[in-house]
Simulated assay, not measured.
Amino acid sequence: MLVSTKGRYALRFLLDLAQHKDAGVISLQAVAERQNVSKKYLERIVSLLSPSGILKITRGYQGGYQLARDPELITVAEILMLTEGGFSPVPIDEARECPASAFAWESLEGAITRCLENITLQDILDHSDPVIEYYI
């Protein structure tokens, strides 16, 4: 499975919010500068994440973003499912072409999913230097 820029930047964005959760509402511009990511690109990522309930959005002059849940309740699987749409290692149509190998692809997808469901934002923060920037 190849994780796209969308998935990697979404994870970096949410890790940044988790790392700075005590700062309150955080502007998209602040995250963009810390993570060296385009603010426009982060806006597109926010539009993917918003319906999920992961983000708390405050509109207006002093507006910005916060995590709506604790970092230990947000998994990498949830984030990548929203941005990548799934964890299939091969295109679905291709997997169905050979029923004999479909079992192997489905097993691999299941293993990837189970692994990512067991990694939370807090797990990543706990295994990282708190002052590093997240270049995933």
Rank of each mutant, 00 (worst) to 15 (best):
G110P: 04
L17I: 04
A100L: 13
F13D: 03
S38A: 13
H20Y: 12
D129E: 13
D129T: 12
Q62E: 09
N36F: 13
L67W: 08
D16K: 13
L80G: 00
I92N: 10
E97V: 07
L73Q: 14
A10M: 02
H127G: 10
G63T: 06
Q122D: 10
K6R: 15
S27F: 01
I136Y: 12
A77Q: 10
G85R: 06
A104Q: 15
L116W: 09
S47Q: 14
I45Q: 02
Q66D: 06
K56R: 11
F13Q: 06
C115D: 13
G7D: 06
L73I: 00
P51F: 03
V46C: 06
R8T: 10
G60N: 08
L14S: 06
S107H: 14
L67M: 09
T120P: 00
T83G: 00
I132W: 11
W105C: 04
D123L: 08
P71K: 01
A95G: 03
G110W: 11
T5Q: 13
V90M: 09
L49C: 03
F103Q: 13
T58M: 02
N36R: 15
S107Q: 15
H127W: 07
G53M: 05
A23E: 15
Q29R: 15
L28T: 12
G85H: 06
Q62K: 15
M81V: 04
G86K: 04
H20Q: 10
Y65M: 05
A68T: 06
